[in-house]
Design a protein around this nucleic acid. Structure first.
Length: 426
RNA sequence: GGAGGGGUGCCGGAGUGGUUGAACGGAGCGGUCUUGAAAACCGUCGAGGGUUUACGCCCUCCGGGGGUUCGAAUCCCCCCCCCUCCGCCA
């Protein structure tokens, strides 16, 4: 959510932001609703002031045992006028609020202009792309031959876009989760939390999945709760409606969660393998920081995500997302992308964003900069560190061997208890 | 799921229709005292919004939403959450 006063006083700033995003938004409608709201509000408040004054006088008269009937009758009329005007005020407030909920965040000045993902900017590459003389096998073939992923039975049990991991596959998933969390807690200063995997509508408004993206989530029938699409939701909302003290910041959390995505509109994309599932595991990093620190925090957040790829010795690049590809709530975003041999390209495996105060305003997360000072909104950030299923796929593909086995990256061996996944004996 | 109790400011905790935005504590902030600190004492101290060049003025907020009333933290209705006991369950 943007600051209504910023919109009111600097509509040019908003207009430019919308243009950079190539986004249609009825800004003039919002501005005129705001103007009308304020003029009605002024009148209602005048009447209320009058009423308050009269009510106090009535109280005084009654205490003195005098007759107050005349004033009461007069105020009865005023009360009616107030409720009529107030209805209009509320209507306008609802309209303004609804519009504020769907106006996207302002891209940071440093975000490259662009129309689509074609215009995203690669900022760095790391690692060496492996060669496969006989061509790389896709991870779903490798997994099938190793007997570690079962899509068919998952389809029988749950449906399309679910997976059963088995044996070393299941263990690899679990090893990755533990490895990632340990790295972030022990070396990057994050506090581990284990969140609920269900969140209520208030939380989803707070982090801005709602109202615009309800279709992408699984709603629990008969409730206003949803399966979380990412741990970002519960972990950011951990501090909803709170005033933090300055010494708590920066506040850095790492959380494992299963993530659930209905993926409306994704039919036909990445239908094979582990890349796009309705349920997947993710280790998420979430930070609450002072506003002046948030861009520095974004850089270190990306480095924290990259560290996972480096430890696993997976080749990757980092892409800076352009204005046209930037998500609704993001002010700036970097996507680390891992090399996926069978795709012959880099594939998104993390997404690290600074939301500035966009989520903090919605979720009402504030802090007191100094004892006695006025409260301010914090800045929130988050990033995957990393998407576990995609990491597993990347390991299978990048570490595949000519004999059908898959070597386990060194960093993972203590967690796996093996240094190689062997194909079953025939 | 059933029964009972409860949700008040940064925290604790009063307050059941008329100067209560809220007593009293604590924390914080400013000051007196002190070489310094502690203690003591004095003062200050919620959030959001409208309006104003500004000082200020005004409105709203006591879990959320409706209602009654000239007037509601206080009365009525619905909902949510927390606690205790019972049931169920891992």
């Amino acid at each position: 959510m943007l600051d209504l006063r910023l919109i009111r006083n600097h509509p040019d700033v908003i207009r430019r932001a919308l243009a950079r995003r190539n986004e249609d938004f009825p800004l003039d409608e919002l501005l005129s609703a705001d103007e009308e709201w304020r003029s009605h509000l002024a009148r209602v408040e005048q009447l209320k002031a009058k009423r308050n004054e009269a009510s106090e006088a009535i109280g005084r008269l009654k205490r003195e045992g005098k007759d107050a009937e005349e004033a009461i009758v007069e105020m009865r009329a005023v009360a009616q006028e107030i409720s009529a005007l107030e209805a209009r005020v509320k209507e306008l407030e609802t309209k303004i609020h609804d519009l504020l909920m769907v106006i996207p965040n302002i891209p940071h000045e440093s975000v490259p202009d662009g129309a689509s993902e074609e215009d995203n900017v690669e900022v760095r590459r790391w690692g060496t792309i492996p060669e496969f003389p006989n061509g790389p096998k896709p991870h779903w073939e490798i997994a099938a031959e190793l007997g570690i992923v079962d899509f068919e039975r998952a389809a029988k049990v749950a449906g399309a876009r679910y997976a059963f991991l088995r044996g070393a596959g299941a263990r690899l998933e679990r090893a990755l989760i533990n490895f990632m969390i340990d790295l972030h807690t022990q070396e990057h200063g994050y506090v581990e939390v284990w969140p609920p995997f269900i969140a209520n509508a208030d939380s989803l408004y707070g982090t801005a999945q709602l109202p615009k993206f309800g279709e992408d989530m699984f709603r629990i029938e008969g409730t206003d709760s949803y399966l979380i699409p990412t741990a970002e939701v519960p972990v950011t909302n951990l501090h909803r409606d709170e005033i933090l003290t300055a010494d708590m910041l920066p506040l850095k959390y790492v959380a494992y969660s299963a993530c659930f995505r209905a993926e409306a509109g994704a039919h036909g994309r990445d239908t094979r393998g582990l890349i796009r599932q309705h349920q997947f595991n993710k280790v998420e990093l979430v930070q609450f920081v002072r506003p002046e620190d948030s861009y520095e925090a974004l850089e270190s957040l990306v480095r924290d995500a990259e560290a996972v790829l480096q430890r696993l010795e997976l080749p990757y690049r980092v892409v800076e997302i352009c204005t046209g590809d930037l998500g609704f709530k993001e002010a700036k975003k970097y996507d680390p992308e891992v090399w996926m041999p069978s795709y012959n390209r880099y594939v998104e495996i993390s997404s690290c964003s600074n939301f500035e105060d966009f989520q903090a305003r919605r979720a009402n997360i504030r802090f007191r900069p100094a004892p006695g000072a006025k409260v301010e909104y914090v800045h929130t950030l988050n990033g995957s560190g990393l998407a576990v299923g995609r990491t597993l796929a990347a390991i299978l593909e990048n570490y595949q061997q000519p004999d059908g086995s898959v070597v386990i990256p060194d960093a993972l061996r203590p967690y796996m208890g093996m240094d190689r996944i062997e194909p079953p004996a025939k």
